[in-house]
């Protein structure tokens, strides 16, 4: 799929991406793959000790889902910048929905840049897991 820079404008919505239901096993896999073995993601007793109901997803796993929404849309290698703020925690059993919207575009040094905002929310309760700003390059690389 090739995006057409001319057809993208402020307000253009990215195709939604759904992920989940999350599982404990995914958190274990992500811990091993990333090397982030913070026990609050994988050891229920530790999560409870620090006041959580149980293990929670790595924020970076949820950020990776948001990134996949961007690359599904703009192509692998298209992401130039992504900044996210983590809000609610994500738990096993939850389904997540990633959404993005274009806020502007510009051509800088011959590169077509598209800027936008994104969110990842819980499908069941609309809880905000993260929100962020992104920039992708369209039509090169």
């Amino acid at each position: 799929m090739t995006l057409d820079f001319d057809s993208i404008d402020k307000g253009t919505e990215l195709p939604e991406l759904e992920r989940g239901p999350l599982t404990e096993l995914q958190f274990v896999r992500y811990a091993g793959a990333s090397g982030d073995f913070n026990p609050i993601h994988v050891v229920p007793r530790v999560a409870q000790f620090v006041g959580l109901d149980g293990v929670i997803a790595h924020g970076m796993l949820v950020m990776a889902y948001a990134t996949t929404m961007l690359t599904d849309w703009a192509g692998v290698g298209a992401v130039r910048r992504l900044k996210v703020r983590f809000s609610d925690t994500s738990h096993p059993g939850e389904e997540l929905v990633c959404r993005g919207r274009v806020t502007g575009k510009e051509t800088v040094d011959g590169e077509n840049l598209v800027h936008g905002k994104l969110t990842v929310k819980g499908k069941a309760d609309d809880s905000l897991k993260l929100k962020g700003d992104f920039t992708v390059v369209v039509g090169s690389r």
């Binding site: 889902y65 990134t67 996949t68 690359t71 692998v76 992401v79």
Partner: peptide, 19 residues
């Protein structure tokens, strides 16, 4: 681990996933 199934990442010369 991140549930990424795009075949584009498996092609020769493809970039690694950002995160």
């Amino acid at each position: 681990a991140i549930g990424e199934s795009s075949p584009a990442y498996l092609q020769e010369g493809a970039p690694l996933p950002p995160t």
